[in-house]
Design a protein around this nucleic acid. Sequence first.
DNA 1: ACTAATGTTGGGAGCGATAACACGCAAGCA
DNA 2: TGCTTGCGTGTTATCGCTCCCAACATTAGT
Lengths: 376, 376
Amino acid sequence: MLIILQSPAKKRGMSLATRKPRNTSGRRSGAPTISDVAVLAGVSPMTVSRVINGEAKVREATREAVNVAIDTLRYAPNRAARSLAGGGQMRIGLLYSNPSAAYLSEFLVGSLEQASRSDVQLIVEKCDIGDHEIEVARHMIESGIDGVILPPPLCDSRAVLDVLTEAGVPTVVVATGSPPEGSAAVTIDDFEAARAMTEHLVKLGHSRIGFIIGNPNQTASRLRHEGYLAAIADAGLAPDESLVVGGLFTYRSGLDGAEQLLDAKDAPTAIFASNDDMAAATVAVAHRRGLDVPGDLTVCGFDDSALATTIWPELTTIHQPIADMSRAAVELLVSAIFNRRSGGKDANGHVVLDYTLVRRQSDAAPRRRPPSRVHL
Amino acid sequence: MLIILQSPAKKRGMSLATRKPRNTSGRRSGAPTISDVAVLAGVSPMTVSRVINGEAKVREATREAVNVAIDTLRYAPNRAARSLAGGGQMRIGLLYSNPSAAYLSEFLVGSLEQASRSDVQLIVEKCDIGDHEIEVARHMIESGIDGVILPPPLCDSRAVLDVLTEAGVPTVVVATGSPPEGSAAVTIDDFEAARAMTEHLVKLGHSRIGFIIGNPNQTASRLRHEGYLAAIADAGLAPDESLVVGGLFTYRSGLDGAEQLLDAKDAPTAIFASNDDMAAATVAVAHRRGLDVPGDLTVCGFDDSALATTIWPELTTIHQPIADMSRAAVELLVSAIFNRRSGGKDANGHVVLDYTLVRRQSDAAPRRRPPSRVHL
DNA sequence: ACTAATGTTGGGAGCGATAACACGCAAGCA
DNA sequence: TGCTTGCGTGTTATCGCTCCCAACATTAGT
């Protein structure tokens, strides 16, 4: 196919010889445009635009013709042009810190996808937790961002949040335990999830279930802990403080927690760690002590991060739909920005997505009797 | 087919008065435009553009004035407009499969950053390895992508590569052992890196150094293996086939490999695994057998993935500058596309970035003597 | 049959930026 | 002095698309 674009280039004294390099080869990259489609379909560009955007007032026959043309030409709308014309280029920022790589990558994939679908530009910025988080946030604001997404653990940073709301930047926090007043949030029900997992353990027959708490800085930790407690209570089990130890969400802290739990006189037959890293550490400690998992000790995690399926045995854990959450976050943010632009007030949506308990190989019923009582 | 698009002819008669009635009224979202800056600086928009793009022919005083205006207005160029006007929107695809999450996230961050810097749109698509990889690739091509980036392990997929080159889509492969003819590549020197690591082990005093090979599907595996072999030879050590076992880059396979290595009569005092996952598995096996790492056994990995610093002891490993590599990949791809557009032939660049050997806690000198010989 | 209402479609003006050319002006050279 | 250079800037035309509104087509209402 040959496309010749004729433009009114022959201005005043311009000779043909002088002009030319541009039109035929230069600027156009070759991608079909909306007018190409229009010509082929025998309609105006406007109509094509309507079809693409799924507007109502287009006759069925016309729509059909346009679609055929689109397929024929393999036409794909030019995003840049679209957002330029369509009144609003949005740029939203994604501020991340603790690169729990597994989490981050899923998160990124999800937000990227949604961002490109919603035609917004995603600006990703790293912001190692430390005393300069605020500066980074501020920098982002000044670079003219329209909204910000805060995945954990930044979602719990009062400081960052304050800077953001003060600047009047719409914000969506993801996976925080306590969504702040002024911003939208996407979460799963950490409480219920932890409760469900604990309940699962109870149903398996465990009565001494250890728990390793997450980093106290993150509000989700509290919810998970409470969920555990609730399930224990529901099961009519006596709460035992020696079965609960503190942790920091790190592997290292999981190592310590597990040692502590397993050192106890009346050691648990199952340990539920507040995240996969600590669960993995627990498995390591168990193995080091010659304990079989899940034969001698059941271990469960939370998050379903990559680690969960990396190690052996693979971890029974709570799956968070991370990509979906970030997708939802972008969507929420976009509509919030949209609202604000059209004068509406902020709609502090709070989206709660479903978690899933995925059973893998790290859980099992306890041995016949709790080891401390009767010897088999 | 011949299509002649004729632009509206009445342009000619357009008077200055008719032009740009709008700019001042501004129904925009509030972001300052290049003309706002121009007005404030008392120059034309074009000049502002020149300043922004760092072009040469602008008087110092003017540049200064423009910059002041830019700062005052907190002006940031509109990307959409920019890529629309400037030669054309590029869209490049990133096809990933094996979500080694840790790797992927770093990779994504790097490419995102560079993509936004180069003003290209990044389309990320998952493509689980299986028999439909080709379809996904084809789909991507048809969606009108200008180029594709292939991180491992897809970079070694002949099938995908073929589809791509056949369609004439510029491609950059990352971290492959054997960069194919038609495409640019970004790698580290796997051979040298493995050699360096092995040498490091030798210097530490180890003479029986085990090696776990990576997945034979990935060409990098071969290079690492060869690097190991070279170092062994260089050190004047007798190559011992019982010290080398196969693996698949998975934790599971690492478990098997390590068992095998440690079961041998004359077990190694150090094990170098071709990636961190397998190294982590080796540590687990060692612990299960009551071996201290690094006291009784040195374990080293490759990649410096998140896992390396997650587990305990943290892994001594080869650091790949993943983000830099993906950044480089995007850059390379962009210039390749650019070249091609302006008629030049493809420049199959091959960028080799530096690796780093990072020492952490998993390596040490062997115990006084190889355990099998003299007892201390 | 004629106006009114409704449904479809086309026209043209931008969105914000850049490319390429046009142009004024001071310096360089004969 | 007259004319070429060439730098620094302004001007114009798009880029590909969507928005607003007018033009036209179709069907309905009395």
